[in-house]
Structures are given as structure tokens and as C-alpha cells.
Design a protein around this nucleic acid. Structure first.
Lengths: 235, 235
DNA sequence: CCGCACTACGTACGGTGTACGTAACTACGA
DNA sequence: TCGTAGTTACGTACACCGTACGTAGTGCGG
């Protein structure tokens, strides 16, 4: 009997090893690593219970002994990649520390492009997420602000990071799984956009795109947005 | 022969009615409305080609005459709900105008809670999206800034709106589709959180949550974040 | 040492997106 | 005017998904 819970359960509250029965063949870290490997290699949508089980070398339904619902697998994946963070001693300059942390997060999301799709306050309490939050708070130790204000700052920084990286990834990967090339895709979309602008219904966009500032500097856009958020909390 | 395209296609570039053949039984607006009805009533994940076709009263595969891929259905849905926007004459106070627009967007997303999940720059060029963008630019007509700066402002405002509403919705709907009550879910999660904090590994979070400021004022959090972004562009 | 809680896993069900084939229909080119 | 090409309509079929359920084997707690 598998024993699906009739009551909510946080996977982290579950012991990895139960008292009775044979010792589990895999650890949570094994499972998370397998799922991350698949997501990195074949894309997030390729992560299925069957494929993860195959990657581990076990039967599909055996996975459900470790992971009661697929959502919990996602939680394991997020926690696993959050283990990549390095948390150096806070420097005393909280702005610099948060910028460094945001850059770490951005780099991690570019390594694991599926992460922004999972980001949600629902998955906020995995062990590594708690470590991350505690460290971020430690960077703000010298700041004279209420706890709530600090949390709002952290939420805004995290929001900017995931939003911007999600956009960067979306534009970069849009054509990856499509049966045509990136140039073709881009040509089709800008071609349509040009045809719309040419109707004269969007004069301001027409004027704007007429300037043609060349390719967008994604790093610059990201850093400007990040610093704007930090500035808005710096009094 | 259905004729799936071998080359990228923007659905908006496709004429609604082709020259030959029987007249289509439905308009794009009909299809979008049906999909929106399902998503509103049963949740985004309930939107399937079969259900939309059933809602319209036609065979499943007939839908593919109108919508080559499911992604295009999403695009139709986003455009449909974007038609709800009202675009009053800009007041001359661009901050107030953008705040009003952000509140409209937030209200719309609360009416259609699946919208944040679809928000992506990939779906940026539907007719109503272009109208929205052009109107927002018109609110910034008096502002002395380059086109690129204005676009960055708009992107940040949109990002804040979707991020914050997505969070509001996620926390509100988390337990809706689960087989247990919201109280049970909340109890399980906070119970685990408390147990973790009690380990002493997270002193700053422990101190913060000890204050217990009562329920979170979501409207206030949203407005503060929005105004911070606007402030950061106001020199 | 018994019994039970656990692990392992095959089968099966109801769902998904969509490729493909066929039949009916209509507007255009000759 | 008429044939035909291109469109609409739609049933069938395939590969895949999450996961409920049943069964068999395993090893610790009482």
C-alpha cells in the first residue's frame, strides 16, 4: 500500500528514511539531481515521472514512494539548484551584497532556465530557501528598517530577478523547440510588427522603433532595473 | 488537408477568413471567449483543445483550422481579456495615469487569475497589446526621456504588476484545487516553518516572525512596490 | 519472532496535444 | 460557366502524461 496522504504535507517535514521496511534505494538529492539533469538537457516540459524514474533506473511508480505528487518533485528541484548559492560574509555594504546575490541568482537561472517557471511563494520554505532568506536578512543587519520592510525589499529584488531572467530566457529559447530557425521566427514576428506599425495606428511605437538603437544590452537593462529597486529603498 | 505551417506564423498575421471554402463557423473572438470562459470557471489547466471545441459545439480537430497550435489559443485568450482595458485621455500627470493603468491591470488579473501565467514578452504583439503599449506611451508624451527609457519604465511597471498579482493569486488559490481545506494547508506549512525556525538556525527570521504584524495588507504592499518603481524613474 | 509498515513495480484509466485521412463545400482562374 | 484547388469539418489513432490500485517482497519495532 502506497499510502497517499489525506492531509496536507510539506515534503520537507517527511523523514527521508522511515523506520520500517527496506532501506530506500535513493536519496532525495539523487531524485532531485536526476530531475534537474533532465530539465537542463531536454527542457522543463520533458520532466515526467516516467523519465525521472528511468534516469534513476527504477520503476515509475516507485518514485511515488519518495515524491507523493509531481509538485513535490518541483520543490526538490528548486531546492537542489538553490544549493549552488555561495553566501560570503556580508561586507557591510548591503547594496553591494544584494547586487552580488542577485547576480548569483541570475547566473543560476541561466544555468537552469526552467527555474523562473517554478518560482512562486508557494515553494518558499525548502531548506535552501530558508538559508537564502536568512543570509539575505543578515546582509541587511545594519539597516535601520522594520522586518516587514526588509522582507518587502527582498521580495522586490527576487521579483525583479525572476521577471527579467524569465524574459531573457523566453526570448532566447522561444524558437529552441520549434521546427524552424530563430532567424525565421524573428523575421516572422518583426515582419508582422512592422506591418502593424505601418498602418499608422501606433505612431509613438513607430517613432520609437524608427530610432533603432541596435541590439538590446540585456546585462545593462537588468542592472539598471536592479539598481532602481535598491535605490528606492535607500534613503 | 489541414496544412500545418512549415514556417513560423504569427496568428494575427493570418486572415480570419480565407478566400476559398465554406465560411468559418466561428470567429477568433468566439474561440477566445470560449477558452476564457473555461479558464475562468475551471482553472487554466482545464483549458484543452477538446474542451474548447466542446464549448463551441464543434469537433476537436476543427479547432485546428482556426488555431494552428495550442500556444496560439493562449495568445487569443490574452488578447481577449486585454480588450477590457479602458484608455481614458491622459491627464498630464503620467504617474497618476500609470498607477491607474496598473490598477486596471491588477483588477483584470484578479478577474482572470490565469493571466499572469501567460504573461511573457513572447505574446507581446497582439492587437490589444499594441493598443495598450501605444496608450502607455501616450501617457508619457510629456516626459523628457528617450524611447528606450520609456520602454524600460513600462516593462518594470508591467513586471511589478504581474509578479505581485501572481503571488497574490498563488497564495489565494494554492489550496483551491487540493483535497483539503485552506486552514489545513496553512497549518501544515506554518507548522513546518515554525518547527524549522525553532531549530535556531534562522535567528533573523525567528526574530522577524516573533513580531507578528498580523495579516498582510496586500493592497498596501502592491501600491508601495508600484510607487517605488515610479519614484525611481522620477527625477 | 511475528506482524506491520515500508519499498518496489506492473497494470490500467482517463486525460492530453495533434498528425493524418476523408468528405463536403465554395470562390477563383480559365 | 465550370472544374478544381484550397478551405472547412471531423473521426480515428498515437504517443505521452499523472497517478490510483493491487501485489509481492523486505526488514525493523514490539
Amino acid at each position: 500500500m502506497v499510502g497517499r496522504p489525506a492531509v496536507p504535507e510539506v515534503i520537507w517535514a517527511r523523514p527521508e528514511r522511515a523506520g520500517r521496511g527496506p532501506r530506500p534505494a535513493f536519496s532525495r538529492a539523487d531524485i532531485a539531481a536526476a530531475a534537474v539533469r533532465i530539465a537542463d538537457a531536454e527542457g522543463f516540459d520533458a520532466v515526467s515521472m516516467r523519465k525521472v524514474a528511468a534516469e534513476l533506473g527504477c520503476g515509475t511508480m516507485s518514485l511515488y514512494n519518495y515524491v507523493p505528487r509531481k509538485e513535490d518533485l518541483y520543490e526538490l528541484m528548486l531546492d537542489a539548484v538553490s544549493g549552488d548559492y555561495e553566501f560570503p560574509e556580508p561586507s557591510g555594504d548591503w547594496r553591494a551584497d544584494l547586487v552580488a546575490l542577485a547576480h548569483q541568482a541570475r547566473a543560476m537561472m541561466h544555468r537552469h532556465t526552467w527555474v523562473p517557471r517554478l518560482m512562486s511563494p508557494v515553494y518558499g520554505f525548502s531548506p535552501n530557501a530558508l538559508r537564502y532568506l536568512e543570509y539575505t536578512l543578515s546582509c541587511l543587519d545594519g539597516v535601520d528598517a522594520r522586518f516587514g520592510e526588509k522582507m518587502e525589499l527582498i521580495a522586490m529584488v527576487n521579483g525583479v530577478v525572476t521577471t527579467y531572467v524569465a524574459n531573457e530566457i523566453a526570448t532566447a529559447e522561444r524558437s529552441r523547440s520549434l521546427p524552424w530557425s530563430e532567424e525565421q521566427e524573428h523575421a516572422a514576428r518583426t515582419g508582422y510588427l512592422i506591418s502593424q506599425i505601418a498602418t499608422g495606428k501606433y505612431p509613438r511605437m513607430a517613432a520609437g522603433f524608427a530610432e533603432d538603437p541596435g541590439p538590446i544590452d540585456l546585462d545593462g537593462v537588468f542592472d539598471r532595473a536592479l539598481h532602481r529597486v535598491l535605490d528606492s529603498f535607500d534613503r
